[in-house]
Simulated scan of single mutants.
Amino acid sequence: MRQQFAIIRAIGFVTYKEWAAFRSHMLASLFVGPVLFLVQVFIWQAMFEGKDIINGLTFAQMLTYYGVATLIHYVTFDFADWNLQMLVRSGKFVTFALRPLPHWLFALAQKIGHRSLALGVEVLPVLLLFIFLFQVDLMPAAPGWATASILLSFMMSFFINYCVGLTAFWIVRAEGVRRVFLLLKDICAGVFLPLSFFPEVVQKILFFLPFQFITYLPTRVFIGDYELAGISLSLAQAVGLQAIAVVLTGCVTLLLYHAALKRFTGVGV
């Protein structure tokens, strides 16, 4: 266990240094994120005209929702799906299949290193921009629960994206499937619209899907309350439910990974 932790730390550090040399690739986020947020400000200003609350959220809470959702996206951004599909399609995955460290753990270490760099290059500048330029309240209601929820969101995002990448073992040209799935994932996660704005029947379906645990739930935990499909949970209950969902999704990821390795070996034979 200690040796694996040292390997993960080394991979994360190398990834950090590698991307630090090309950190200008991340600077586009300093423009894209705030511009998209500004669009949301204009939209919701019009929606809240003459209204104090919409679906249980005030205008200030709505801005906080989108501000936190944007920052969570920066923290949890993942490219494991694209990277894995490229390795499988090019045949380079065979080098990882022969290594003692499973590729999913290697990919997780890469993500940790990549997102560690993003904390200073993307998250902090945009956070300050939201606070001082847009006057958004980004003080979590319960810092401990908010931090735990964002860390769980980090893991959930990785597991789901890695599962998408594993489809390359069954579908060689999986780029189309990947793009459609990731779009649906963002919709079902509450990136474009809080899930509480969907019809009740849709909310009930979304409640049992894993996607809400990437954006919607950690954002609501950050704000200080959680409600979906008529179900209200305390912060402890919401984070506990998220932890269970992450463990289950992780188990599914490992099962798919081992099934993919058997298929990869079978093709090689």
Score class of each variant (00 low, 15 high):
Met1Cys: 03
Gln3Val: 14
Gln4Leu: 10
Gln4Pro: 00
Phe5Asp: 10
Phe5Ser: 13
Ile8Cys: 06
Arg9Tyr: 11
Ala10Gln: 15
Ala10Arg: 15
Phe13Tyr: 13
Val14Arg: 14
Val14Gln: 13
Thr15His: 07
Thr15Ala: 05
Tyr16Leu: 04
Lys17Pro: 03
Glu18Met: 14
Ala20Ser: 13
Ala21Phe: 15
Ser24Met: 04
His25Gly: 09
Met26Cys: 07
Leu27Cys: 12
Ser29Gln: 06
Ser29Asn: 04
Gly33Arg: 06
Pro34Val: 05
Pro34Cys: 04
Val39Tyr: 01
Val39Ile: 14
Phe42Ser: 13
Phe42Ala: 15
Glu49Arg: 12
Gly50Lys: 10
Ile54Phe: 11
Asn55Val: 09
Gly56Thr: 06
Leu57Tyr: 14
Phe59Val: 06
Met62Val: 00
Met62Trp: 04
Thr64Cys: 01
Thr64Val: 01
Tyr66Lys: 04
Tyr66Asn: 01
Val68Phe: 08
Leu71Ala: 04
Ile72Met: 05
Tyr74Ala: 06
Val75Pro: 01
Val75Ile: 14
Trp82Phe: 12
Asn83Asp: 15
Gln85Asn: 12
Leu87Met: 13
Leu87Arg: 15
Arg89Met: 13
Phe93Leu: 09
Phe96His: 15
Leu98Pro: 08
Leu105His: 03
Phe106Met: 14
Gln110Asp: 13
Ile112Ser: 01
Gly113Phe: 08
Leu119Ser: 08
Glu122Asp: 09
Leu124Gly: 12
Leu124Met: 13
Pro125Gly: 12
Ile131Leu: 04
Phe134Thr: 04
Phe134Tyr: 01
Met139Gly: 08
Ala142Val: 12
Trp145Met: 12
Ala148Tyr: 07
Leu151Thr: 07
Leu152Phe: 09
Leu152Gln: 08
Met155Gly: 02
Ser157Asn: 15
Phe159Asp: 11
Ile160Cys: 09
Tyr162Met: 09
Tyr162Leu: 11
Leu166Met: 15
Leu166Phe: 10
Ile171Trp: 12
Ala174Gln: 03
Gly176Ile: 07
Leu183Ser: 00
Lys185Ile: 15
Asp186His: 12
Gly190Val: 07
Val191Met: 14
Phe192Trp: 08
Pro194Phe: 09
Pro194Leu: 10
Pro194Met: 10
Phe198Val: 05
Pro199Gly: 06
Lys204Gln: 12
Gln212Leu: 02
Phe213His: 10
Thr215Cys: 08
Tyr216Lys: 04
Tyr216Trp: 07
Phe222Arg: 04
Ile223Phe: 00
Gly224His: 02
Leu228Phe: 09
Gly230Thr: 06
Ile231Thr: 11
Ile231Met: 09
Leu233Thr: 01
Ala238Ser: 02
Val239Met: 03
Gln242Ser: 00
Ala243Met: 02
Val247Gln: 01
Leu248Thr: 02
Thr253Gln: 08
Thr253Asn: 05
Leu254Tyr: 10
Leu255Ile: 05
His258Lys: 11
Ala260Cys: 01
Leu261Asp: 00
Leu261Thr: 07
Arg263Gly: 07
Arg263Tyr: 07
Gly266Trp: 14
Val267Gly: 00
Gly268Ser: 03
Gly268Trp: 02
